[in-house]
Computed example of a mutant assay.
Amino acid sequence: MELLASAIDNTNRLIGKAVAWLALLMVLVQFGVVVARYVFGVGDLWAQESVVYMHGFLFMLAAAYTLSEDGHVRVDIFYRGASERSRALVDLCGALVLLIPVAVLITWSSWNYVGNSWTIMEGSMEASGIPGVFLLKTAIPAFGILVGAQGVVMMLRALLVLSGGAGRASVR
């Protein structure tokens, strides 16, 4: 169980750290777009659309990494003061009842949508836009798969704690 959890964690960590660089690139490109437009009076649709693509990829592909780092917002009125076993039970139930079913639903419901986009090699609605909307849409099922896999890690870690095995920190 620990080996599987570590493999999924490492994969999500690698993807998350790689796409995190898109945040810096997004700021630089957006700054360039603004300077080009308002200082030089020139616009570039590819640059403008690339910011949207980067934002989409960053949000969708880094979500599982954020989850692995426990960085998502949690209403922790009870969770914060709970014992490690109680937290593990909440994590197990949350992943089993909410997280994984939603991730499966997102992946399943987006599959044909993304497949159709790939079939026609969907591009931008603008004539001179980026011809890769199908690539951007691929991030939707990837999001579901990565977050669902991280949900499995949450369940495995919770089961380890509940069975008296290693604590959360030692599994990472």
Rank of each mutant, 00 (worst) to 15 (best):
A127E: 15
L96E: 02
T107K: 10
Y53T: 05
A142G: 01
M155R: 04
M54D: 01
A95F: 01
L105Y: 14
M125W: 12
V147A: 06
L162V: 08
M60P: 07
L160E: 12
F57G: 03
S163H: 14
S110I: 07
Q150E: 13
R157S: 06
N112D: 14
K137G: 00
G165F: 07
L135T: 09
G129W: 05
A149C: 12
L162D: 03
S50I: 01
G71T: 07
V90I: 15
V147L: 12
A158E: 04
F78G: 08
M121R: 14
V75Q: 14
V97W: 06
L89V: 10
W118Q: 06
R85S: 14
L99N: 03
V153A: 04
W46S: 12
A149Q: 02
L105I: 15
G151N: 02
T107M: 10
L99P: 00
G71D: 09
S109Q: 13
L146R: 03
Y79V: 11
Y65I: 05
G144V: 02
R157T: 03
F143Q: 02
F143S: 02
F59V: 15
F57C: 09
A62Y: 04
L146D: 00
V75K: 15
S110C: 11
V133G: 09
S163Q: 12
Y53E: 05
E49T: 08
F78V: 14
H55M: 13
G132N: 11
G129V: 05
L156T: 07
D76I: 14
N112L: 13
S124A: 09
V97F: 08
F134W: 09
L67C: 08
I100E: 00
G151W: 00
E84S: 08
H55C: 11
G132E: 11
H55V: 10
V51K: 05
H72C: 13
Y53H: 12
P101H: 07
R168T: 10
A158N: 05
M121N: 10
S128T: 15
N112R: 15
W118G: 01
E126L: 12
I130G: 08
L61I: 01
S124I: 03
G123L: 12
F134D: 08
L159E: 05
F59G: 08
G148L: 02
G123P: 04
G167L: 05
D70C: 09
E84R: 09
T119D: 09
C93D: 14
N116P: 04
S83I: 03
D76T: 14
E126M: 11
R80M: 13
L92N: 07
A127L: 14
L146G: 00
A62I: 03
Q48L: 08
L156G: 04
R168M: 07
A149Y: 02
S117M: 05
E122N: 01
S128W: 14
G151H: 00
G123I: 04
V51L: 08
T107F: 10
L136S: 01
V97G: 10
L92Y: 10
S117F: 00
W108Y: 13
A103R: 00
R85Y: 11
T119H: 08
E69K: 11
V147M: 09
H55G: 12
N112C: 10
L136D: 00
Y113L: 15
V97T: 09
F134H: 10
